[in-house]
């Protein structure tokens, strides 16, 4: 039987009328996104609370486990939306585990947190399920680099996973470049993920999965940058998704156990392949306004009402 401290604490706290929402924010959360989430959520939820993850108190005892913030029991809320990143790994694993064992609804899972914060793990899970991806390798000794090259060929993208967080991506074109990068890697205990480099056009596609809805955005990179990254000066616009994009995005989200996420796609040999799945996607407000945030909140409120109805039945 699921066990949480909430069972005993719930009775002592004032009853919340209407769906209630907690947004657990990352240490590096963008203020504009949080502000927009609050403003949209206040239209649909009777009680909205934003809690920075590092301010949460995690309690465990023989009675179970609970999450508290300034004396408030967070598991009393109908919906909990953790917007956390690999920077929050130390606390996020515990927080997500406790949420999973509670009756509150969350659009993301602990499994999805582990997978999406690990480039190779994402690729492995999706490939094993037959979803189109990019050839990837994963190893812990730089001595395996040549073996990896025989799988991906040049150029390839190298990502170092140090302990628990990604440490940036490097594009490697030849042996000389690889050797100089590996010299630095040898100094530290690193986990090395390499991926065949896909030379796309100057854009990629981001599919926002929100339940059954898929909103698709074309992201165009800044001239000269091989990454179509908005924070690096690119741009974004909503487009109509093809059935292939919808199917890939929805299946990827399903396999990773997420109701809300973003699946990044690129075109390779006339097929769309998954490049990355985002646990905490940004809503591109500069280009899309409140569109994405509005849909997130709408979906969460529907789920919140369901939780409330189930609670009433009990």
């Amino acid at each position: 039987m699921k066990k949480q401290l909430t069972k005993t604490k719930t009775q002592k706290e004032p009853k919340i009328v209407g769906p209630s929402l907690v947004i657990i924010s990352s240490k590096g959360a963008k203020l504009s996104t949080i502000k927009s989430l609050i403003s949209e959520a206040q239209k649909k939820f009777s009680n909205v609370l934003v809690v920075p993850i590092n301010k949460i108190q995690i309690q465990t005892s023989e009675q179970g486990a609970g999450l508290f913030y300034k004396g408030k029991n967070l598991l009393c809320f109908d919906v909990i939306y953790p917007r956390v990143s690999s920077k929050d790994f130390f606390l996020a694993e515990s927080v997500l585990k406790i949420i999973e064992s509670s009756d509150s609804y969350s659009p993301v899972s602990l499994k999805s947190f582990h997978m999406t914060n690990h480039k190779f793990f994402t690729s492995q899970i999706l490939s094993n399920k037959g979803l189109p991806g990019v050839t990837s390798t994963f190893f812990i000794s730089s001595k395996r680099a040549q073996m990896a090259v025989s799988e991906t060929g040049f150029p390839f993208v190298m990502k170092l996973i140090s302990g628990f967080a990604g440490k940036g991506v490097v594009l490697i074109n030849n042996n000389d470049q690889m050797e100089s990068i590996l010299d630095a890697v040898n100094l530290f205990e690193e986990f090395i993920c390499t991926q065949k480099f896909i030379k796309g056009k100057n854009f990629d596609i981001r599919c926002y999965v929100i339940g059954n809805l898929v909103l698709t955005v074309k992201r165009t990179s800044k001239k000269g940058d091989w990454r179509a990254n908005i924070s690096r000066g690119g741009s974004a616009q909503l487009i109509n998704p093809t059935p292939e994009m919808i199917s890939i995005a929805q299946n990827a989200a399903k396999e990773l156990g997420m109701d809300i996420c973003a699946v990044d796609l690129m075109q390779h040999k006339n097929k769309w392949v998954v490049i990355e799945v985002n646990f905490m996607p940004g809503p591109f407000m500069k280009y899309l306004g409140n569109t994405i945030v509005h849909e997130w909140v709408r979906y969460l409120s529907v789920k919140g009402k369901k939780v409330q109805n189930e609670e009433t039945k009990k």
Partner: peptide
């Protein structure tokens, strides 16, 4: 500790804060 406590394993009371 969270996983053990949720599954009824006896552990000392523990608090974690960021």
């Amino acid at each position: 500790f969270v996983s053990l406590a949720i599954n009824n394993v006896k552990t000392p009371k523990t608090l974690t804060s960021g």
